[in-house]
Simulated scan of single mutants.
Amino acid sequence: MGRFTEETEEHSMFRSSVQGFIQKEVRPFFQDWEAQGIVSRELWEKAGAAGLLCPQVPEEYGGPGCSFKYNTMVIEEFTGEGFIGPVNNFSVHSDVCAGYLLGYGSEEQKKKWLPRMVSGETVCAIAMTEPGTGSDLQAIKTRAKRQGDSYIINGSKTFISNGQHADLVIVVARTGEESGAAGISLVLVESTREGFERGRNLDKIGHHSADTSELFFSDVEVPASNLLGSEGSGFGALMSELPQERLTIAVASIGAAQYAFDITRHYMEERTAFGKPIIKFQANSHKMADLKADLAVGWAFVDQCIKQHELGELTPANASIAKLWCSELQGKLVDQCLQFFGGYGFMKEYEISRLFNDARVQRIYGGTSEIMRELISRYL
């Protein structure tokens, strides 16, 4: 697609490699993964071998040491082909989990885990949400109690992306007795630890090929060296990394919205009513013009935010604006596009119906639209 500005020859070569990977390793198998509710484990290893995982990881930890723009290009190319489910899980691994290890991991933790994440040997998840907390991370109840040289972890998590495939989980847990944000820490938990249990792969209305799970921790013992950062620093770490996560959701939303627009325009050019293509009716063409204008604004602002992020200048407000605008636009756009398909849009065999379902969660995870508005309002 290449809708971002100031791209180099190296960027174009990377895009081409991502596009080739999608055509060979994703497109032929996507419908099977959607039906099974999970991608194959081999996809992770193939993506690692192709250089699609954790592009920003420095060479000293087994990565290519690219700028974060390469991460966003992976998302853009996958969503630009309609494959938002698989790239959602890749993004959690590459854009969220890797960021915590890079920013807060010890040298030993980085050397142990980052090369495996780059190769796809280790799939990583982050366990924040609990059944009773939702967006209120300060209310978590999962506890990691220090006992000698270990932490004993008890609690449960839900809506965890990569939960079925995860080999390593960054668990948000309470290590102190303080209420609220104080006393929250991040602890690394290997899936092989006794007492760690995966729940069911949750049945969602969209993103079917992106596994999403419940996770349970029953007296899970990990060494104290599995603490990520320092005790009590977890909430601050979460807040500092969320702008990057919200930016990647914005990229996914604008890419998926553009794909929905493109296939709808093609359909409207081919579908006739009363002797002419339905795109020739002024009511329809004007609505498409509005959507095209909204997309142009969204792409431009996301492009601006990526540049700011690479300079270390992306603010929480701008990340929230990008996430709010692009996810709300995606929802509005796919709803209107489905309408243009008429009765066929309500049929599962038409791709627009899947895009409609896939769009809904974009306004929820990574911070709901309501939370985004609250955050933006603080900077008025």
Rank of each mutant, 00 (worst) to 15 (best):
E245Q: 11
T122I: 02
I249T: 11
N162P: 10
N357K: 08
K276V: 13
Q330M: 10
Q147T: 05
D136N: 14
E25W: 03
G180E: 11
S253K: 03
E34F: 00
A273Y: 09
T368L: 00
N318H: 15
S185W: 13
E60V: 14
F4L: 15
L324N: 06
Q23T: 05
R174E: 04
Q36V: 07
E328H: 04
P243R: 01
S150Q: 12
C305P: 01
A317P: 01
P28F: 14
E270A: 01
E269D: 11
L227V: 08
R146T: 06
G236P: 10
G234T: 13
P131G: 08
Y100D: 03
W113P: 02
E121P: 07
L380E: 15
S17T: 10
G180S: 12
G85P: 11
L137N: 03
G229A: 10
L53Q: 02
S179F: 14
A182W: 10
D149M: 06
A224K: 05
N318I: 04
S369R: 11
Q36G: 11
G367M: 09
L114D: 09
R265M: 01
K141S: 15
S225A: 15
R363D: 12
M347Q: 12
L295G: 09
S179N: 10
F29T: 03
F216S: 11
N226L: 04
A237Y: 05
V26I: 07
L186A: 00
I84W: 00
M13T: 06
R265T: 07
Q330A: 06
K111V: 00
A224N: 01
A322E: 10
E108H: 08
S353P: 06
L291P: 00
G206F: 00
P58R: 08
P28D: 11
Q31T: 15
T129A: 12
G298P: 01
W44S: 08
A50V: 05
L227G: 09
Q339T: 01
L333P: 01
R27H: 13
T79W: 00
A317D: 11
S253V: 03
S16L: 05
P131F: 13
F356M: 15
Q336E: 08
D262A: 12
G180Q: 05
F281C: 13
S119T: 15
A296T: 12
I170T: 05
C97F: 00
P277R: 06
V169I: 15
K24H: 08
I22D: 09
P243W: 05
L168D: 09
S327L: 05
Y61V: 01
L215K: 10
E107H: 04
E34V: 09
D136T: 10
S233N: 07
S185I: 08
G234W: 14
R246V: 03
Y350W: 08
T129W: 12
G199A: 13
Q36H: 11
K141A: 13
S16V: 00
V87A: 01
L52H: 08
D262N: 13
F196S: 08
I321T: 10
F216G: 08
T8Y: 13
G80K: 09
S191Y: 01
D294P: 03
S209Q: 01
I140D: 09
E76F: 09
L311P: 02
G80I: 05
G232E: 04
F78N: 14
S218Q: 15
A47M: 13
E42L: 11
S161T: 14
S353K: 15
D32S: 14
G176E: 00
L228E: 07
S285H: 02
L247V: 04
F346Q: 05
F346E: 12
